[in-house]
Amino acid sequence: MAALSDFINLYLLPGLVVGCIYALGAIGISLLFGILRFAHFAHGDMMTLGAYLAIIFTASLGWSPYAALPIAVVGTAIVALALDRAFYKPFRRSAGIVTVIASFGVMLMLRSAIQLIWGVDVKTYDIGIRFPMEFGMLKIAPRQVTIVLVTAALVVALHLFLSRTRLGKAMRAVSDDPDLARVSGINVEQVVRWTWIIGAGLAAAGGVFIGIQTKVHPNMGWDLLLPLFAAAVLGGIGRPYGAVAGGLAIGLCQELATYPWFSDQPFVAPGYKPAVAFSVMVIMLIWRPTGLFRGRVF
């Protein structure tokens, strides 16, 4: 039984938590792709930005990161709106790939700005040590429960937004057919603004969760980019629910791949976790480039 409890406590649960974090980032990539038709390369750095904005309050005011989270979300959304206005809006009518280059530039600018303001050292939120709760053989850290529950709540909120509100439905309409949305009188720019607010806000929440779970450093956005893209491709890019499933799947795959499945050595060396995400992405591109959920509506 020891093996099973290790499997759950050291691989399955962390995989779920990482999966939640990936899901929060991948939703934004998928939504933005659906609305603006480009792969947003700076999205990982939006997560970094959220994590660092929270540090302002945890470090100087001694706040709990959970209390700083809403402010980080709002702050990141505002920065995203400003970046869109300055660097993406001029290319609305150009080919999507030019916007990808612009986002490539924004990625570097965001990262160097973060390095300039906060330095390059690894930082942590000072949460103090909390002992894991034990349920029989399960050892669950309170932060793991919080991350999973808050992610679930955010996904439910996103679902209600997309299925019940006028703006959410308009967002799906623009993603479905931007030209028809425009001639129907839908204010596409308003939809774009809300896409940034939601995408960047969820990314910031994911970034803060990374800080709560482990640590924060300026390059983490780059490390996140590959799993986020893999999650978005897996879920069928442009489909936010698919991105949630894709995020969870990539997170679980990465962690479970390091389990000693066939010998007493990790099946995949922990240093190669991002390669697992890449393999999943490549397999999807070969087998089913439209993603697992191509048939679903979003």
Binding site: A170, R172, A173, D176, D179, L180, G185, I186, F298
Partner: peptide
């Protein structure tokens, strides 16, 4: 428009609601 004149993934009711966006 002649082609692609409905939001395919939206329900009929949602299509009508989108017409009333303004």
């Amino acid at each position: 428009p002649q082609e692609r004149n409905v939001f395919r993934s939206l329900s009929v009711r949602e299509n009508l609601e989108m017409g009333a966006f303004l």
